[in-house]
Design a protein around this nucleic acid. Structure first.
Lengths: 334, 334
DNA sequence: TTGCACAATGGCAACGTTAACATTTGGGCG
DNA sequence: CGCCCAAATGTTAACGTTGCCATTGTGCAA
């Protein structure tokens, strides 16, 4: 029969097995200094009572939680699922767990994420930044709580990791220029998006680095509808032979918008997106796009915390490049 | 200066503020029986030392963790992000946190999810089931650990919650029949998917309930490519005036496949999908589809655990219906 | 036979917090 | 002036685990 007591402790197991609490503890940790037959007796007692180690007692004793906290201002967001996959994979590897917390974005500060985490059982924390927190410059992580920010911006006190948005734009623009296009038009995104702004900057800077003055760009809102409108607007521009859209949805919308005005892709205009999110959704085309490795971003963040294991860890900044995936929406003009 | 000691405890604060540890504890919990000026003195000490309550000590004392564990076999999956949004929202409401764990799917058993959670600081757990676990019938939740399964199947010992997949198909089929279609063709999904199988069953049963023998259906693989092939195959079938696809990607692929064979949607054939996932991705169409409320599914699961608060909670089964979203891909034949 | 090394196990204390109970203090009232 | 009550604060113990050190038992060499 199961025990009546709420929770079974080492003490109960010890009593039943006729050994000391210490021997039970040693058995739990499979210490070599317990005789096999004793171990078996203890294990039998554990099974009979349904013993499972109490996390609180254990971490109180050890002073470690073996858990990494993840603070998100928005749970729903492109790439978050892959990042979580990375968090979970890295945590698993180190025997850690992940504690997830939604942080209210009013105000949008690192401080609010940090204080939200402070009373939770975590050894370190990861903050996913979508926008620019008001206190980014002045924020100090909690003492003893290693804090990793998921952002392309560098922080003096916190390690950071993110997709390399700037490099993403560089790859796209240089690829298109390499195909003989004289310039690259751009469909941007809402200004509040940090990663989008970095893509925009990468586009502009790369063109300039090749001596090309960036043309006027269109600001979309991430949706295919806005890409569609942009495509229609750009269809009449004779200088426009290549379009780079901030994400795949806008790129696809743009293609349809161009087609609605009689332009063909890629024969008349080349189009490139970002995210590689349409592979299973658009059946008759293979969009040229950039695939990020968000899982790796997530793994890096958790590795940084769980892998440190007491070593005083320095602040590091990691950028993970995306991969250009060539589809059938770009034409070689050469 | 910050303290040199690793962690600051109530004892340190008490010493600095010149009060007892108990008074510090009372201040932390804002007890009315501490004089305001004393409280202020204690708070000043806490600030100076950078005190933050130790989770392990607290839950050891209380015997509660205020945390719900979520076990997933696959992190990446349609709707998981929305479900997590729901988990986090409900947890927040009750002052709980969420601990996320990836469970190895070999073997794919509830037991492995359960034992993975058993040593973590959680008061209850949620398991997201994508497939049928080998031990579904025999599984017993850990004593004292309330377990909620996210699945449409009912379990004798665990509460369950999920989208109502059966009702989803019923809504779609009855809507199409109501528009005057004589039958509804179906594009299914891989057999291992529980929710997909339930959609298939709902399609079949609803047709039969209307005295219609279900036509042969095509098994897709969730991708637009498979939907495209299905659309091409169905284009030549004169009895096919309405197609119901197991998800939006296949529905969209199907539309393009039909169009590639000269059929127009909805003039010649009506098409309906499931998930409402293409709203921001397909610019020039509004697919008729079913929108599920995964956030509500997630909230229900966590509410069930965090809202119970010691009350011995009965086993409940909850199905959350989706909403049919009417787009422009269905024609009224009447 | 004694001494010694080593294997196996036990006793104790401490981690940080807080519920329950105990004590002190001050004020009002007869 | 003494009594009692309530407000404010203090003391103690316990939650479950495990590191450290002590103790016991066993076999072997001297």
């Amino acid at each position: 029969m199961a025990a009546v007591k709420k929770s079974v402790s080492v003490k109960d197991v010890a009593r039943l097995a006729g050994v000391s609490e210490q021997t039970v503890s040693r058995t739990v940790h499979d210490s070599p200094s317990v005789r096999p037959e004793t171990k078996e007796r203890v294990r039998a007692a554990m099974r009979e009572l349904g013993y499972r180690p109490n996390f609180a007692g254990r971490s109180l004793r050890r002073g470690k939680f073996k858990t990494v906290g993840v603070a998100m201002f928005n749970i729903t967001g492109t790439g978050n699922l892959d990042r979580m996959e990375g968090f979970a994979a890295a945590a698993d590897k180190h025997g850690y767990a992940i504690t997830l917390t939604k942080v209210d974005g009013h105000p949008y500060t690192l401080e609010s994420a940090s204080s939200r985490m402070s009373a939770l059982p975590v050894d370190g924390m990861v903050v996913i930044m979508n926008r620019m927190p008001a206190d980014f410059g002045t924020f100090e992580p909690l003492p003893g709580m290693q804090t990793v920010l998921v952002t392309m911006l560098e922080h003096p006190l916190c390690s950071t990791v993110d997709n390399d948005q700037f490099d993403c734009s560089r790859q796209v623009v240089e690829y298109l220029l390499g195909q003989g296009h004289k310039t690259v038009h751009f469909i941007s995104c809402p200004e509040r998006s940090l990663s989008g702004m970095q893509r925009e900057e990468g586009w502009r800077e790369t063109l300039r680095a090749h001596g090309i003055e960036p043309p006027r760009f269109i600001r979309g809102d991430w949706t295919a509808q806005s890409g569609y409108a942009a495509g229609q607007a750009l269809a009449d521009d004779p200088t426009c032979t290549a379009i780079y859209a901030s994400n795949d949805a806008m790129a696809y919308g743009c293609i349809r918008g161009l087609e609605s005005r009689g332009k063909r892709v890629p024969e008349d205009v080349s189009v490139v997106g970002v995210d590689d999110s349409l592979g299973d959704i658009v059946p008759d085309r293979r969009l040229t796009t950039v695939r990020f490795n968000n899982k790796r971003v997530g793994m890096w963040a958790v590795d940084k915390i769980a892998g440190a294991e007491g070593v005083a860890p320095g602040v590091e900044h990691m950028l993970i490049p995306g991969v250009l995936v060539k589809g059938d929406t770009v034409r070689d003009l050469r």
